[in-house]
């Protein structure tokens, strides 16, 4: 197959960047999108040019490293699929394909198609965990968890942190990412203990990083490679409101021994 590629090239964070047109020829319909780019890069290297830099790692749809905005959609045209699991047979022969990096003020471009998503780590660091240490833990079966709750928590926990939700959102909002983590932990008794504190901290951190607001377009749900539902956003809103309205003020206790 033959494709015309219009790929965003940008030398580094301070470079302005722009689309560059390439021809990809002799591409097998069975090759993945990345294998097509590999092939292009080999040609560029042979010509002594700088290959296209893109983020990728596991190439089996689970690590969440890949982050290409293809023809106006994060991870390309297929639903529930990461870029690495996208194959060239999903495109028409001769098609022109636009490849761009995720766009969001909180995800600055590092080079070409690679962006810095450490804002997501910062949000998790604000409270996306249960505060337990590795020791002194009661037996795993001490607290039964309703199967439905565990399953729903899993659905939210399936997030791979790729950022497609932010990339697809007209407002570059991170609500689905944050909502998924808040939901995952709020649904389980283990995470319930600090749920009120968690949701407030995580939302405050999200706000401070410059993501947009949710305007309920649900593009995030449509583009999420793990098909995480926007009900998680509603649950986060619920948790947040309840925490804001009902939670006691946090207090600092100081004492001396």
């Amino acid at each position: 197959m033959i494709f015309t590629l219009k790929i965003w090239r940008q030398k580094n964070a301070s470079d302005k960047g722009g689309l560059v047109t390439y021809k990809a020829e002799d591409i097998s319909p069975d090759s993945s999108f990345f294998e097509m780019l590999d092939q292009l890069n080999q040609q560029l290297i042979a010509k002594g040019e700088d290959p296209v830099a893109f983020d990728h790692d596991c190439r089996e749809g689970i690590c969440g490293t890949c982050s290409l905005y293809i023809n106006g959609r994060p991870h390309g045209p297929l639903k529930g699929t990461t870029t690495c699991q996208l194959h060239m047979r999903s495109f028409r022969n001769g098609e022109t394909i636009y490849v761009e990096p995720w766009r969001c003020g909180a995800f600055p471009v590092i080079k070409d198609l690679i962006v810095d998503r450490s804002a997501f780590d910062t949000i998790i660091q604000a409270g996306g965990y249960v505060s337990v240490n590795s020791g002194g833990i009661p037996d795993a079966n001490t607290i039964p968890v309703p199967k439905l709750d565990a399953d729903t928590a899993f659905d939210a926990a399936a997030c791979i942190g790729c950022g497609a939700c932010v990339a697809s959102c007209p407002n570059a909002s991170a609500m689905l990412f944050v909502g998924a983590k808040v939901s995952h932990l709020a649904l389980l008794p283990q995470g319930r203990v600090e749920a009120e504190h968690r949701v407030q901290k995580m939302v405050a951190t999200m706000d401070s990083l410059g993501f947009g607001n949710c305007s309920n377009t649900y593009a995030c749900e449509a583009e999420c490679p793990k098909e995480i539902a926007v009900t998680n956003i509603a649950r986060m809103n619920r948790e947040f409101l309840a925490a804001k309205i009902f939670a006691e003020k946090e207090k600092q206790i100081s004492f001396t021994l």
């Binding site: 965990y129 249960v130 337990v132 590795s134 020791g135 833990i137 009661p138 037996d139 795993a140 079966n141 039964p144 968890v145 309703p146 199967k147 565990a150 399953d151 928590a153 899993f154 926990a157 995952h184 932990l185 389980l188 283990q190 995470g191």
Partner: peptide, 22 residues
């Protein structure tokens, strides 16, 4: 066995039976 205890406490959503146990 301790690993499972810790992971459950961290919020790892392991598969469960209808009775709520692992």
């Amino acid at each position: 066995p301790e690993i499972i205890d810790l992971c459950v406490a961290q919020g790892v959503p392991f598969a469960r039976e209808y009775g709520g146990l692992l």
